[in-house]
Structures are given as structure tokens and as C-alpha cells.
Design a protein around this nucleic acid. Structure first.
Lengths: 214, 214
DNA sequence: TTTTATGTTGACCGGTTGGTCAGGTTGTGG
DNA sequence: CCACAACCTGACCAACCGGTCAACATAAAA
């Protein structure tokens, strides 16, 4: 057995095979679902994107719905992680400002997931309705209380916390969901690093001024 | 010929037949495309929704794509009409405030069209790319100049007009595109008249404060 | 080495879809 | 009243889709 066996196996272990193939398929599925919608996506398209035979997809994911559900859950968990920033913040500048930064970063790094989520909700959330009614509802109520506390402490103007949250979601996700439109209005070029910084700064400036936190 | 022939014909005129059937089909198509996506929508579903045989749809609209294109053009024209308010306004309070009012009203009255547009853009705008590159680009540049003029006249803070526009689009359309999520977070009830007024007031308040217009 | 569980895949199938078309009905101008 | 054009529709078809399965390959366990 060669010395580098543990850092570069020629023959992958069983557990690695499963993990890597599931990752490959999920990434391909996220892209195809985002670009074609659930109805427009085909298992063959996802298989081609993943570089695997179609039958292999069905070995790891029983049905198209199962695969789709996993993709939607993925972006939801990423967003929930980003929302941690909200809680530990002493005031709206750090809390809401940091949340905007985090969500804008996700819109740039995970545009496909955001689109799949948007599409799912637009179609009536047929597969994640329970998430909306449990996790999202609880999370929203908690954040509304946090915002209300900042208002009570005089750290920001008295605004409707619920509609403030909707504005945060709408604006940050817009840069992912409507990225194609933004790119077209940017002379068909993707936003540069500098332009992304400008976007984040503009959104934070508008929101934090709007709530009277700066 | 009866006296009331001109105000209530039993047998419709040819031109009326065409107009009414096209209207019926377009309304049904808008709803089905919004709820199922382009790929998930079927001509049979649209036909059932319209109460017409499938073959009749193909008499008025040659292909599924033709029908879809007409639906997308419709919402775009509605939005363009609403944007007229922008031009004649003396300042940002009237111009941007009025634009928010108009777009929020459209989100309530035409939620299906908004969803179809969102879906189309998310999928890379395959059928309306030319609209984005001509009409929308021109409109956007004009509005950016109007905002810049207000800034130069000291009627609002110096903000990035482009990102301000994106925030307006994102936030107002969010109430249509993510209406299901908003309804779920509203105890599964649609927003009442009072709640819509509160939403419009909140959005206007946040934006107009954010740009320093009030 | 043998056995067994896991991973791989081409070929296939029933069901659905967008679209066609022949043959009929109805309104309208002459 | 007639002839023509517009309108209507049941029946049909080729193409495609999600999903299955038997046969095979390979890695781990015995």
C-alpha cells in the first residue's frame, strides 16, 4: 500500500461515493430546477448536467419530488444559518445591517437556490408548506419581537416590523431572483465585486436610514 | 329586430366573439402559468379553466409559447402605464410615493401576471429578452435621470438611483410574488383592506425616509 | 477466496403532452 | 336566400417523460 493512501485514494470508499454523488446530483438539480422550473426540469437534463446516467439518479433519489424537496430544504437552512446574526446584535445597525450583508452574500453565492425557493413559494409552496407554518412562522415572530425591542429602546423609529422584514427579504433576494434582469440593465455584464459592494452599501444605507437607525 | 338589439344581442357579433374568447383564454392562461409555471402548465388545464375545448385554444393561439408571450406582454404594459406617474411628479414624495402606491395596487389586482413575469425573468427571460434590452433599459435610464435631478435639486439625499429602483421593484412585487408566504405568516388569511393600506404606508414611509424626502 | 451488499446502467414501458386535422356549425356580406 | 369566411371540436398522433428492472461491476466483509 502506497504511503499517500490516506490522502489520495485511487479507489474511493463506499461512504465517499454516496456523499459525492449525492452532492453532484443536488448541485446539478439546483441549477436545472432554477433555470427550468420544476415542471420544465427533466431527470434527463439533471443527469446530463451531473454527468451521470438517468437511472443512477433514481438510485439515490427515489422520485423527482424527493430530489426537489432536498434542494429546497438546502437553501432554507442556509438562510436560517445567516439569520443567527440577528439575535446576538445589540442594535439594528449591527443586527439588520449584518443580516442584509449576509443575505446579499447568499444571493451572490447561491442564486440558484434562491430562485428555486421563490418558484416554490410562487406556486403555493406545495412541498414546503409545513416549513412555512412552523419554522418560518416561529422565526418571524421572534425577529419581530427583537425589532420591537429595539424600537422600545429608542434605537430606531417605530416602523411596522413585519413589513420591514418583507422589505429585507424582497430586496436582498431580488439580486438573486432577478439577477438576469439586473445583468441586462448592467450592459449584459454580471455585477463586479465593486458593484456588489455598492449594492450592499446602498441597500443598507436606504434601510438603516429608513428606520432611523443612522 | 327588437328595440334593445344594440345593448343586448343574443347572438354575438363576430368581432365580439374573437375579443371575448381571447380575453377568456388569456385570463385562464395567466392564472395557470402563474400557479404551475410554463413547464407545469398544460394546454388542457388552461382549456378547462377557460371552459373551452383544447383545440379551440389552438385556433386563437398557434402554440403554447404564443399564448405565454401574450400573457407576459400584458403585465409588462400594465406596469409601464403605472410608471407614467413618475414623470409628471414635481418631487420624490409625489413621484416615488405615487409609483409605490400604483405598483402595490397592481400587486393586489394582478398577482398572477406579476408571478408570470418573475418566473420568466428567473428562467433567463427566454421570450422577453428584447423587451429588457430596449423598453425596460430605456425606461430605467429615464427614471434614473429623473431621480438624479431630484437629488441635484436637493429634494432627496444622494442615493444610488439604480439600487433605489431595484428596491422599489423588489418590495412592491414581493407582495404579489410571495403573496402565499405573506398569507401564511398572516395566519393563513389574505391581507385585509386595512392591512393593504398598512403595507402601502409602511413601504412608502420606509423608502421616503430612506431617501430623505420626508 | 468466497460471499454479500452497494453501486451502475441500457433498455424498456405506460401515461401524458403539444399540436394537427377533417368535418361540422354559425354569422355575415351580397 | 346563397356562398363564403370565420369559428368550433372530437379524435388522433408522434414525441417525450418519470420511473422500473434485470443484469452486471465493484468494494467490503467473512
Amino acid at each position: 500500500m502506497p504511503a499517500d493512501a490516506q490522502i489520495s485514494r485511487l479507489k474511493p470508499r463506499r461512504t465517499d461515493i454516496r456523499r459525492e454523488n449525492e452532492r453532484t446530483i443536488l448541485d446539478a438539480a439546483e441549477k436545472v430546477f432554477a433555470e427550468a422550473g420544476f415542471g420544465g426540469a427533466t431527470m434527463q437534463l439533471i443527469a446530463d448536467m451531473a454527468g451521470l446516467p438517468k437511472a443512477n439518479l433514481h438510485y439515490y433519489f427515489a422520485t423527482k419530488e424527493d430530489l426537489y424537496r432536498r434542494v429546497v430544504q438546502q437553501i432554507f437552512e442556509i438562510w436560517l444559518d445567516a439569520a443567527m446574526l440577528f439575535d446576538d446584535a445589540p442594535g439594528p445597525v449591527e443586527g439588520i445591517g449584518g443580516y442584509i450583508d449576509a443575505k446579499m452574500d447568499i444571493s451572490r453565492t447561491h442564486p440558484y437556490g434562491s430562485k428555486v425557493w421563490a418558484s416554490e413559494v410562487m406556486h403555493g409552496a406545495p412541498v414546503i408548506q409545513d416549513y412555512l407554518e412552523t419554522t418560518l412562522r416561529d422565526w418571524t415572530e421572534g425577529r419581530i419581537r427583537a425589532i420591537q425591542r429595539w424600537i422600545d429602546e429608542g434605537k430606531m423609529r417605530p416602523v411596522n416590523p413585519r413589513h420591514l422584514l418583507y422589505m429585507l427579504w424582497a430586496t436582498t433576494q431580488h439580486y438573486a431572483d432577478f439577477g438576469h434582469q439586473i445583468q441586462t440593465l448592467n450592459n449584459d455584464r454580471p455585477l463586479s465585486d465593486r458593484q456588489w459592494l455598492e449594492a450592499k452599501a446602498s441597500v443598507k444605507d436606504l434601510v438603516l436610514r429608513g428606520i432611523g437607525a443612522i
